[in-house]
């Protein structure tokens, strides 16, 4: 962590890793708003034992449908991109042998793309 933290003291130089570091901060602030709100909405406002097919169908197809679909897709993209970039850092920190390092990162990329496609498909093609 200290290496990444010290990056902030250097001049902004661009490059993939610097952008990734920057993206983690930006998406972190976004997620602080949308992921924490999603969690509190589900547990404190709707309350988990009240969640049913109809509740979700109403949220996605009702008057506010376009809003909630956009919200859920934003959550999907930000949370997954932030989370999987974080997992990539974890792989780099602990898995040093070149072959396994590449293998795990490729695996992460495949899971990331599959899950993002499934999530987007669900949000956009649900009709009720």
């Amino acid at each position: 962590m200290s290496n990444r933290t010290e990056l902030s003291k250097f001049k902004f130089q661009g490059g993939f890793e610097t952008w990734a570091w920057f993206f983690m901060r930006i998406s972190g602030v976004v997620l602080l708003l949308i992921a924490v709100f999603h969690l509190l909405l589900m547990h404190v406002y709707i309350q988990v034992e009240n969640i049913t097919y109809d509740v979700v169908a109403n949220r996605w197809t009702g008057a506010w449908g376009p809003f909630w679909r956009t919200y859920d897709v934003a959550l999907l993209i930000f949370a997954l991109t932030h989370g999987f970039n974080g997992l990539r850092w974890v792989v780099d920190d602990y898995i040093h042998r070149a072959g396994w390092n590449v293998f795990f990162k490729a695996l992460l990329l495949v899971i990331y793309l599959t899950v993002i496609a499934m999530g987007a498909y669900t949000v956009f093609s649900f009709t009720g």
Binding site: Y53, G83, G86, V90, V115, M118, G119, T122, S125, F126
Partner: peptide
């Protein structure tokens, strides 16, 4: 962070089941 990311994979799979109808969900 790792825990929430793993849950998120599961969560997108569980949401996907809504495409199979009310009973499955």
């Amino acid at each position: 962070g790792i825990g929430v990311a793993l849950f998120l994979i599961l969560h997108i799979l569980d949401n996907f089941i809504i495409m199979f109808g009310e009973e499955a969900f």
